[in-house]
Design a protein around this nucleic acid. Structure first.
Lengths: 235, 235
DNA sequence: CGGGCGTAGATTGTATAATCTTTCGCCTGT
DNA sequence: ACAGGCGAAAGATTATACAATCTACGCCCG
């Protein structure tokens, strides 16, 4: 009865219709094509992907768990609008988790992984060079996910995926436009530390990288007026 | 039209049918009435709760995200069976996150919270006294969630909820039976440190508490033989 | 008599239909 | 003219029906 034991290797999404929807919407949100607060109608999305509302609903519920979509009862799904407080929480969590992740990544370092990291850096640089901001944001997040995969800790990886998704949204919302070129260099430095298996340096660079990203944000409520109003009325 | 603006305080579940199912199944799993590997048929559950498969399916998908249910495509949902490797990951994550959570909890300390903690300790002692192992496991987990709520960090709280659910399952699976009475005392010590606003002590006690819980586990694959076999055949 | 193939039953995955909630326009009464 | 309420339409929630897939039992063949 051995037959074909489904290989344990997860094929979690490929050719899975729910995942196609999820990834499409995620990409649209993280690449700033869908602004925070945008309504995500079920049949609207369903029509785009040629799927019924059942599948769309499943996808949206998953995105809710990732923190980039809010579902309001009887009102529908909307692109999440993280508050500055949310942003601070997200970055604090990243400062806690990611140095540890780099540590583990260094324990798992191998030529194959180093090559993969190197290729990723090249991709990032290329996107930066051609001024593709959307790809830059996406690749920047994927770098951190790559390191988490490398660490081999599935729990941390899961947490980080959520934090990265939220971060991308936050950066798009709150980034100041007066900042200079950003931090592909940071990523290169981190990879260099990983290559040297220097945990101290890797942790430190990861931490300062995160601090710098957060420092580039303007975390005062942008629509402070209306948000306050909502809070006040709610309380 | 103010009417009843739903207070932002999450009432995520009450009187929500999906949540009733989710919590019922969760309780059954965490109280060891449903053993790991048990099949969770959709019709079966739906009949119990008088709900259609649509709602059951939603609940099961949420439980998948919490890590206590696995859904295998075209085969159905099963109570998760965490491996020893999973267990080590979960406890490592808890050792990383929970000391930080206690820190923040101390920043948020107030008479109301201290009272709440104290009442919880009383509940735990009472369950312990009457030998109600199921309630003990549940309340023990809820203590940690309570501290996380106190910290006010919704991200950490979300992560911890997942870690606690998995932990409960892990403890039920791997706990050695030759251990003496367990750690309500630890919880009391942590509360005492919180009351004194002594972050150093609180972090240290939380850490040793977690270490002690993990030390009470027997993390060698119990069905090592069959699992190895499966891995080998899969690879 | 043992093993493999095929069909039947059961269970999940997906789509569609029915029900209910909310919202927004319009109408009426003051 | 404006406030308030009624009603219809849009959309979300839930249920049900249909299709696809897996499991298991039994029959046939070696």
């Amino acid at each position: 009865m051995a037959a074909k034991t489904r290989p344990k290797s997860e094929a979690p999404d490929v050719s899975d219709r729910v995942s196609r929807i999820r990834e499409g919407v995620t990409a649209a949100i993280l690449e700033h094509r869908l602004l925070p607060g945008t309504k995500l109608g079920e049949d609207e999305i369903g029509e785009i992907y040629g799927a019924s509302r059942t599948l769309v609903r499943t996808a949206l519920q998953q995105l809710t768990h990732e923190g980039i979509v809010n579902i309001e009862k009887n009102r529908g799904a909307f692109v999440a609008r993280p508050t500055p407080a949310d942003a601070r929480e997200v970055f604090e969590a990243r400062r806690l988790i990611e140095p540890t992740i780099v540590d583990h990544a260094i324990d798992a370092v191998s030529p194959a992984w180093l090559d993969r990291l190197q290729r990723h850096l090249a991709e990032e640089r290329e996107a930066e060079l051609r001024g593709d901001a959307r790809a830059s944001v996406r690749l920047s997040g994927e770098f951190h996910k790559l390191v988490a995969e490398m660490s081999g800790h599935s729990i941390y990886l899961g947490f980080l995926k959520e934090l990265i998704a939220r971060s991308s949204l936050i950066i798009l919302l709150y980034r100041r436009h007066d900042t200079p070129a950003c931090g592909t260099d940071h990523h290169a430095g981190i990879v260099a530390a990983i290559r040297k298996r220097d945990k101290q340096a890797a942790r430190a660079q990861m931490l300062s990288h995160l601090n710098e990203i957060e420092a580039e944000l303007f975390l005062k409520d942008p629509a402070a007026a209306e948000l306050r109003l909502a809070d006040v009325l709610g309380a």
